[in-house]
Design a protein around this nucleic acid. Structure first.
Lengths: 115, 115
DNA sequence: ATCGATACTGACAAAGTTGTCAGTACCAGC
DNA sequence: GCTGGTACTGACAACTTTGTCAGTATCGAT
């Protein structure tokens, strides 16, 4: 049940994209970059995502070493997710992507309103 | 016949990713970053890609303003694709992505050989 | 007259991703 | 003893993306 396809591509661009690719991964990382969060908190803070999808993406991000899972082991269950040390190296990359994306959105909007 | 899904997401990260997302877009941009190329040249230089897929991706990149299509209008047809001025603003972003990807591949390889 | 090269399109199948729904297990409160 | 909250899984439907295959048009060479 994979959320991102590309298995083990040798292309560094594909390798990077496979980590953040997935319908909700960007948003999840954005939320977690502000601090650790519980599964249910994340679920409530991301409108439109289903629990199933959230958990699938979280598991992939954990598998890729980008985020960490901390289970309190208590009942009712309480699990916190946070960006790992390795994941933090990704944040500046996301910022560059985000900056270009913001610029691009402005360009697209201008193009739309020109019609 | 879209190659990338996300229509008009307000998230800048998604906006950026929708532009380079697609099985072969990274590779195509990589090739074109070295200079203009004909459709058939690109086809031959990217192993595994089909003509159909190449053309679909090229058309999307043109639509997004990242690359330019120049048709000589001759027979037999001769069409050159090149990175547009706007597309050039994307190159540094790709370089950051690529740098992280390269690093990530090394980490993944270490993890694999450790098993 | 047929073949190969060029740059494409259309129809459709295969594969991959996302979403839906039901179900598990435990505890707390009413 | 029923309901609601927590974190999760499995099966499967729906949708998206990718790949396959055949077909278009024109020119030049054989």
């Amino acid at each position: 049940m994979p959320v991102s396809k590309k298995e083990i591509s040798e292309c560094p661009i594909d390798a990077m994209l496979s980590v953040i690719d997935g319908r909700w991964k960007g948003t999840i990382l954005w939320r977690l970059s502000e601090g650790p969060m519980r599964t249910s908190e994340l679920h409530r803070s991301i409108p439109g995502i289903t629990e199933r999808m959230l958990i699938r993406h979280l598991q992939e991000l954990v598998k890729d070493g980008i985020i960490q899972r901390r289970d309190e082991g208590s009942h009712p269950p309480c699990v916190h997710y946070s960006i790992s040390r390795y994941g933090r190296t990704l944040v500046p990359v996301l910022e560059v992507i985000c900056a270009w994306g913001r610029h691009h959105l402005k360009v697209v909007h201008r193009a739309c309103s020109a019609i």
